[in-house]
């Protein structure tokens, strides 16, 4: 299970456009030419992806900083 955010906290979220619940799936994230797949909540229909606040301000911010200082 992913350690970078808690999907249980986001159970209530649905894609407003398609009106279907978001599902955990592999999504590529990238920065400064480095890319890797992670598990994120995504609309299985239109592909809308939810980036949780704690991920954006936590691990994502850390990766950004590390890659910028590389």
């Amino acid at each position: 299970m992913s350690e970078y955010f808690d999907p249980a906290k986001y159970e209530g979220w649905v894609c407003a456009d398609c009106n279907i619940p978001l599902q955990l799936s592999k999504v590529d994230v990238s920065y400064l030419g480095n890319s890797f797949p992670v598990d994120l909540l995504k609309c299985p229909n239109c592909g809308l992806v939810l980036i949780p606040e704690e991920l954006a301000l936590g691990k994502m911010a850390e990766v950004e900083k590390a890659l910028e200082d590389k």
Binding site: G33, P37, E62, A66
Partner: peptide, 26 residues
């Protein structure tokens, strides 16, 4: 290495990919 995802080099699936890239960058 740039054109190569370092995740594919890791056999252990339970590694947090963020941690992996933070460590690799450091």
């Amino acid at each position: 290495l740039k054109e190569f995802s370092i995740c594919t080099l890791t056999t252990a699936a339970q590694v947090d990919p963020f941690d992996l890239h933070i460590a690799a960058a450091k």
